[in-house]
């Protein structure tokens, strides 16, 4: 099988797998990363969102070959409890979830947004998260959390 090379959370990787397989299947399967969640397998819910380059994309319908030589970041690369990303701090501060299954994808969409637009309006946050589904109805808390993180980042 052809080798696909890409950077995952800053680390160079070589993957020996069918390049038509989904990125999510590789991440959760042979790479053992359980942060990106399977939700629909059709790019319709955002639970598996990761950042490729500077955009949040669904890993479930993205073929492995399409990330060749690119930077891929998963929730595992966003932050840890010791070194949390401001978004993670803000989601805890706002208690911005109920079940939390959608949260890793939502954090990645929000992180991509804040990278290209560090001070988004409420409307811009909603637009950026519009392809992420949340079934528990925690949207408003998540919205507040993203705005809070943006403020915190702006304050340095």
């Amino acid at each position: 099988m052809p080798i696909v090379r890409f950077r995952l959370n800053g680390v160079e990787l070589e993957i020996d797998a069918d390049p038509d397989r989904s990125l999510l299947s590789i991440l959760r399967g042979q790479l053992g990363l359980t942060g990106p969640h399977f939700g629909c397998g059709a790019g319709e819910c955002g639970a598996c969102n990761v950042i490729v380059g500077d955009r949040a994309v669904s890993a479930c319908d993205m073929p492995l070959w399409s990330v060749a030589d690119k930077d891929v970041m998963t929730i595992e690369g966003l932050g840890t409890s010791e070194r949390p990303h401001p978004l993670q701090r803000a989601f805890i501060a706002e208690q911005a979830l109920q079940c939390g299954y959608c949260v890793s994808g939502i954090l990645m969409s929000a992180a991509a947004l804040l990278k290209r637009n560090p001070s988004p309006t409420s409307r811009e946050v909603k637009e950026a998260l519009d392809r992420n589904l949340c079934r528990c109805g925690s949207h408003n808390r998540m919205l507040r959390a993203v705005l809070r993180a943006a403020e915190e980042m702006a304050a340095g």
Partner: peptide, 14 residues
């Protein structure tokens, strides 16, 4: 909530 925000494997799926 911290487990879920830091994506520690708390769900059965993980």
């Amino acid at each position: 909530i911290p487990d879920k925000v830091f994506a520690r494997p708390r769900f059965i799926h993980d």
